[in-house]
Design a protein around this nucleic acid. Structure first.
Lengths: 336, 336
DNA sequence: TTGTAAGCGTTATCAC
DNA sequence: GTGATAACGCTTACAA
């Protein structure tokens, strides 16, 4: 019960061996003779010995810790990544320090500095901006970096990302196979790289089908919420825009279906709607929505795998960028 | 760019002071003369010095790290707690090590041990079981504990929880104010303490209204999913059970509404449904659902506040249990 | 197979 | 206000 706090030395004394041997029992059991090992284990048990990783970190210069820096943890997309990362790291006995930047560069910077001070072995980062000077502290202490869900030059770091252009392509490709004419796109701001990429993919799908990319009828909404989607749906219904609609997230898509329905345009009877993300599971409307699924768990797992590989390889490591392809999840909203 | 890695000593040399002074500049700037301080800061800048927290941890016996152990991070209830905890911890410059137990006791145990080895200053735990012997390692190294979302004897640790009994009470109280007769409850397994508590609250509300608690018509479902809710809704419709229905989570509630609707029983026209949790925001059905809201962010914040207080108070600390009251979020599903 | 001993980079206790 | 210096607990050559 009491809160003692001895060290290797106490264990060594009780077991009648040296500290080096105790250390070996802990880290390289195979080099220790069996009877010695057992004596040491017994002493560890007896004293409730808890190794002090700070001492090991100090000595080795690196901590069995990975940093994970994301913009938001309530967002199910990132939550899924967090889950995958935590599981993968746990498999290799790494602790994960979670940092939520909330899109605040100053906060993100503090997180980087903190991870550097902790001598984190590596960090998985969904960066707010592409300003690499911010990472100098981490570089300085040798923390390895993986950029997640953003692309970056391979000379800088490893990265994993999901190909949003392809996501836009398969969405529109699918819509083109549904009866109707023309394509509408309901998008967020073009300044968001994901939105821009998905739109690029949409245009590319039109081009591949021998259609004019400029024939895409665009609705650029300020927010990417259900409300904004409803507004877009109304405008589509009112303006006679194409009723094969690609929305760049699921909320917009659900809103669009609702906005269309207000004037009696039912999906999928009179319209076809494709969303993006496949995140809002478990709700009625999402269950009917054809959408673009993103392999986020896989991305998280591979990110950790890359990081651990880089840690093993050391100097010999060469950065690489991995891209994951989204796949279409076909449901009712495009089934005529 | 190079990866140097000096220490206080190098900074001290460059600034022409002792390591003690550099340490003071970092930790107690006010005791250092201004010109000296400035010279030291310049040297720190010049050398890109990054303090090594492992050394400080080793010396001080405690790490500026909080552990957060939860069963699941994709679940929005826990995600909200994680967010609140991370923000609160960040305010006081604590790093948060996230551990996801996935309901696996062995894994949870590893997490505890790991936090002990890291000499975490404290840990916020949503424990799988109430087996306190599991925490011996943590106790041994002086890590302070706060139990979150579970109750525990005040002699053991501080805790924060949400009063599920009261949640059940206000839900049924509200249903009793809606036209109709009798109350149905759609619940998960009674072995889940939250389910049992919410049911207890429901019975208590009946009693307070002068009704027989045993008049509560119960449906105990194996899962707490939308599907299970649909099944319950069908059974309610078929059996003529009371159509004022309290469901112990939102998924069940959404399912019940759907199941009822299959036989033309529309909510709120012919039925009143109350859910629990207020988590599935942004979906059409959830927007219409009267439900019991849980102050989860507040719980997370207070948990960290308690932990930090305990860390400050040290020996003098006395444990305490804080209970948060849920509040009813009234929406369409009970509005006749 | 085991022991010896030199650090790792801080912080804290004294002197000055 | 500042400087020496002794821990803190572990890992790792190297020696035996």
């Amino acid at each position: 019960m009491g809160q003692r706090n001895l060290g290797l030395a106490a264990v060594a004394r009780l077991a009648g061996v040296s500290t080096a041997t105790v250390s070996n029992v802990l880290n390289r059991p195979h080099v220790v003779a069996v009877p010695t090992r057992e004596r040491v284990m017994a002493a560890i048990e007896e004293l409730d010995f808890v190794p002090n990783r700070a001492a090991a970190t100090l000595r080795q210069g690196t901590n069995r810790v990975l940093g994970l820096v994301i913009p938001d943890v309530v967002n199910p997309f990132y939550a899924a990544i967090v889950d995958a990362v935590v599981v993968a790291a746990d498999r290799d006995r790494y602790a994960v320090v979670l940092c939520v930047s909330h899109e605040d560069p100053a906060r993100e910077q503090r997180h980087f500095d903190m991870l550097a001070e902790q001598r984190a072995a590596g960090a998985l980062v969904v960066p707010i901006s592409a300003d690499w000077s911010r990472l100098s502290q981490l570089r300085m202490v040798g923390t390895r970096l993986i950029v997640v869900d953003r692309s970056i030059d391979e000379s800088e770091a490893c990265s994993v990302a999901i190909d949003d252009v392809h996501g836009g392509e398969i969405a529109v490709e699918h819509l083109l196979g549904v009866p109707g004419s023309g394509i509408s796109i309901v998008n967020g701001s073009h300044t968001i790289v994901q939105c821009e990429d998905r739109r690029t993919g949409a245009r590319s799908a039109l081009a591949s089908a021998g259609l004019d990319p400029d024939s895409l009828v665009e609705f650029e909404m300020r927010d990417m919420t259900i409300e904004a989607g409803v507004e877009a749906g109304r405008r589509i219904a009112a303006s006679g825009a194409p009723r094969r609609v690609f929305c760049t997230n699921d909320q917009l898509a659900i809103g669009v279906m609702r906005g269309l329905a207000e004037t009696g345009v039912e999906t999928p009877r009179d319209a076809a709607v494709v969303g993006y993300g496949d995140l809002a599971f478990g709700t009625e409307e999402a269950r009917r929505l054809t959408t673009v699924g993103q392999p986020k768990q896989e991305m998280g797992e591979v990110a950790v795998a890359k990081l651990l590989a880089e840690l093993q390889e050391g100097k010999a490591h060469r950065h690489s960028a991995t891209t994951f392809q989204p796949r279409l999840v076909v449901r009712e909203s495009t089934g005529r």
